[in-house]
Amino acid sequence: MNLLELESLSVRFGGHLAVSDVSMKVEGGRVSGLIGPNGAGKTTTFNAICGVVTPSSGRVSLGGKDISKIGTHKRARLGIGRTFQRLEVFSSLTVRENIQVGLEIRRSWSRRSATLPQYLADGGDPKPEDEINLILERLDLGPLAEQPVGALPTGHARLVELGRALAARPSVLLLDEPASGLDDSETDIFGDLLITLAANGLGILLVEHDVALVMRVCSHLSVLDFGQVIASGSPEEVRANEAVLSAYLGTAPAPETPEYSGIDLAGSTQEAGS
């Protein structure tokens, strides 16, 4: 079933249309990928999903419920978790405390005693202490637990963000370049982790530049360019798509972008619309 759904989402910054008429679905239990060149609008899409920017039009819904109009923290409470492209860790706290804060914030708003999601463990609602240890273990952060996050290398700090997001027990997780800063073997392990999490019910939307990782873990891909979805489908379909190749490599003409068409760069007097 479609967990998270974007319908004709557009985000405008002044005169610039950063995200234009994007529709996309994220299903539970699998990893969906969102790729595209720099400045294509991937992070802006994330921000619009979790309410950090206000879309100019379109709809975001979670489990069929329209969440476009509610605040960031309320969306989080409904089950949207995320990490950040530019790190937003709690740098004066330790690794353990970062995850602990995520857990404690969840406990402050989650009144009913929800059972632990399947993707974390096989049932039960462990004590907070155990749950933190469980997450540390899953992410291989155990040995670093007492380190201040401010002193960690980027790759590990990204894992801390992931752990913190998991502690809030989201149903959909938005990951913004989680593997940058990891080395090759760490990336492999990380890919396995994503696959396991998804296999146990978590819906994941992944923005990542490591294309090998994306191709391996994602069962569905959407490609953004100039804020528009130019292709979507299975990794194989996308890889073969001519529009995608041109978006990355710049050969064939891209889809019609009326906003920019016909600008006379050479200074001819020809009429142009913009």
Binding site: C50, G51, V52, G71, T72, H73, K74, A76, R77, I80, G81, R82, F84, E88, V89, F90, V101, G102, I105, R106, S108, W109, E161, R164, A165, A167, A168
Partner: peptide
Amino acid sequence: VACATLGLN
């Protein structure tokens, strides 16, 4: 912003 995305008001 991280606190908000964890559900903190």
